[in-house]
């Protein structure tokens, strides 16, 4: 049974008085220990997908469809319909979240160590002294040398890479089974980024973590994930195993992203995708990618494509999927 199942998830923002579709018909499932990378341009709805899964949508946003999560005691709960008290039992404990802006997600006036002990103390069985020992151990686990010194520092005294690792330690404090990492390495330099991803990889293996990695770095997704979910303007344009997506992308958007990543790797000048991602407040009819699609035809402008099975566990939303053979 899958740890997480997302079924036809749609998110709508009605805070401005009109309905704005943020996510539309997202479906995927995640088995224990698996990693899915969510890729797409800024504004494609990646972060909103994370917030939906953890039940933290801002006021004025509403969900339809379903998000099923299997808890450690084998209870199946629906994140969308569950009571807030039930969500509190899984949020930060069963499901950990690492935010994109690590420094902004840390409390600037609380010492780093105390931020971890605060999380640990939510569990009433852990006393203060034990929490301090565990916090130092967590700092060590995430590769922060001198845990004793780091324990007493404030977030502003840490470098970007250290702050990001501290944020990871905080997310791990609740011993989550599912970790959602929202662009955890996008602000890091290349050496810190590689160190961080290696660390995440090691912790994933050691703790059998299930991971949702949100990134706009295609290379990072390809090297890290078992499955890839491609989002474009709130729509899931393609989903499949990493190898399938890498070797036989079916959606023109996925192919364009892969081409850019490949060109950068092979020291060529990449061809950018023409135009900009459609604004969610001003969506055109039909396929959301059609204004930028080199293969767009009349039907793409008129109708929204439905999901097509390309092969086992490989889906695409396109009227003219690319030749995947």
């Amino acid at each position: 049974m899958s740890l997480l199942t997302v079924e036809n998830l749609s998110v709508v923002n009605s805070s401005s008085g009109r309905l704005i579709s943020i996510l539309r018909n997202i479906s995927f499932s995640l088995n224990s220990g698996e990693t899915v990378a969510v890729i797409g341009e800024t504004g494609s709805g990646k972060s909103m997908l994370c917030k939906s899964i953890i039940g933290l949508l801002p006021p004025g946003f509403s969900c339809s469809g379903n998000i099923w999560y299997i808890t450690s005691d084998n209870t199946k709960i629906s994140v969308i319909t569950a009571e807030e008290s039930d969500l509190l039992n899984i949020r930060g404990k069963e499901i950990g979240l690492v935010f994109q802006e690590a420094v902004a997600s840390l409390n600037p006036v609380v010492r780093c160590g105390n931020q971890i002990t605060d999380v640990l103390s939510v569990d009433s069985q852990i006393d203060k002294n034990r929490a301090k020992i565990l916090a130092r151990k967590l700092l060590e686990t995430v590769g922060l040398s001198e845990p004793e010194r780091i324990f007493h520092t404030y977030p502003h005294q840490l470098s970007g890479g250290m702050a990001q690792r501290l944020a990871l330690a905080l997310a791990l404090a609740g011993e989550p089974r599912l970790l959602i990492a929202d662009e955890p390495s996008s602000s890091l330099d290349s050496i810190s980024k590689k160190y961080y991803l290696n660390l995440l990889n090691r912790l994933k293996q050691e703790n059998n973590l299930t991971l949702i990695l949100v990134t706009h770095d295609v290379d990072e997704a390809l090297s890290f994930a078992d499955n890839i979910l491609v989002l474009y303007a709130g729509c899931m344009t393609e989903y499949g195993r990493t190898g399938d997506i890498q070797n036989a992308p079916a959606h023109p958007y996925t192919k364009a992203l892969l081409n850019i990543a490949r060109a950068l790797k092979e020291n060529d000048f990449p061809a950018p995708i023409p135009g900009e991602i459609s604004s969610l407040t001003n969506l055109t009819s039909g396929c959301r990618f059609h204004p930028r699609c080199p293969k767009a035809q009349d039907i793409c402008r008129a109708k929204e494509p439905s999901s097509i099975d390309i092969s086992d566990n490989h889906y695409v939303r396109c009227f003219f999927p690319l030749d995947t053979i």
Binding site: K194, N201, R202, D217, L222, F224
Partner: peptide
């Protein structure tokens, strides 16, 4: 980023 290490 290819060949990420599992040892961190």
């Amino acid at each position: 980023l290819t060949n990420l290490s599992k040892t961190g």
